[in-house]
Design a protein around this nucleic acid. Structure first.
Length: 315
DNA sequence: CGTCCAGGTCTAC
DNA sequence: GGTAGACCTGGACGC
């Protein structure tokens, strides 16, 4: 099936930029296939999960291939909804695009960058983000892979390949696993207690992450959302900023051991103070964090491959 | 071998 | 409110 690629304000959407918009998008059950510019993932649905492959389709469209048996009409519609959600097609970025036009360092964004891919659930993004804290990327991959491989429900009609071909585990499944599992199998170290405590709170309903994600800025201002996230076990300033960017709240800059040196390298070498970096992006107001992230990740995608057409009209 | 540290967070001053 | 120290893990280093 094909899905039209356009933002809620009619903005262009660069599919590959979206699929590779941040590292968490490449954690199981997601897998990026760079050569084919395709993302493989497994989506939770009302029934059994389904594995899909998302890549470029006819001009201005993404093509979604469902693996295993062909989906029924209703199931296909549910899959399309999920895919539109993870691609963040419901968001209107036109105000941000109006702002970057005047910034020579970011005008390239107008070709359709800036859409941060998200997971099917806020829960998945929060758990994955906690697994990025204070460890190398290889450790993050190991932890998330173990969670999905051992606790994730297999997709219909496919043979799971390790952590692939399974949906991300539910809060219930993660709560049912004991602390020994987090220590001995996930090798999560001190994060094990955070993960178990968090999943338990979500499973018993005392914490509603999906509601936090669905709340509008009017209902829940960024500062209040940040306070809710910071109250979660294992979530500090870095993790809160990262989660907020995945929730479409871009006011905060993700300042960590990767972004700080990368910013320094792109701006002439010397390390900059956090306040200096924040001042550079303050002009973007509620989009400051998004502008910062795009500034840092411009070289992640070869710009030759960006689509023309409606993108050119927006520039 | 030991030390350091990675896309930090928590607790205790 | 700001700031040390501890914290699991496992690669990357230096000795």
């Amino acid at each position: 099936m094909e899905i039209p690629l356009a933002g809620a304000g009619g903005e262009p959407v660069d599919l590959w930029r979206t699929l590779s918009s941040h590292g968490v998008a490449d954690l199981p059950p997601n897998r990026l296939h760079e050569d084919e510019r395709m993302l493989e993932t497994t989506l939770p649905l009302d029934g059994q999960p389904r594995s899909v492959r998302i890549s470029a389709g006819s001009p201005g469209h993404a093509v979604v291939e469902v693996e295993g048996r062909a989906p029924g009409k209703r199931e296909a519609a549910a899959v399309a909804d999920r895919v539109a959600h993870i691609l963040r097609l419901d968001e209107d970025l036109s105000a941000f695009y109006d702002a970057v036009r005047a910034d020579p360092d970011l005008a390239w964004v107008l070709k359709g960058a800036g859409r941060m891919m998200r997971s099917p659930t806020v829960f998945e993004d929060v758990v994955k983000t906690i697994c990025t804290t204070n460890c190398t990327w290889s450790a993050t991959v190991r932890m998330v892979s173990a969670l999905v491989e051992h606790l994730g429900e297999p997709a219909a009609g496919v043979t799971p390949d390790g952590p692939f071909g399974r949906a991300f585990p539910t809060p219930e499944a993660m709560t049912a696993a004991n602390l020994d599992f987090y220590r001995d199998v996930v090798r999560a170290g001190y994060r094990g207690a955070y993960l178990h405590s968090l999943t338990e709170s979500v499973a018993d309903g005392s914490v509603d992450l999906e509601a936090l994600g669905a709340a509008t800025r009017d209902e829940l201002p960024d500062d209040e959302l940040a306070a809710h996230l910071l109250a979660l076990p294992g979530v500090g300033p870095y993790a809160a900023a990262h989660i907020m960017m995945m929730l479409g709240r871009y006011s905060r800059l993700i300042l960590d051991s990767w972004t700080r040196p990368k910013y320094a390298r792109l701006t002439g070498g010397r390390a900059k103070k956090d306040t200096t970096i924040e001042r550079r992006f303050r002009r973007y107001g509620p989009y400051a964090g998004l502008a910062f992230w795009l500034f840092l990740t411009r070289d992640w995608v070869d710009e030759e491959g960006a689509p023309a057409g409606i993108a050119a009209a927006w520039a």
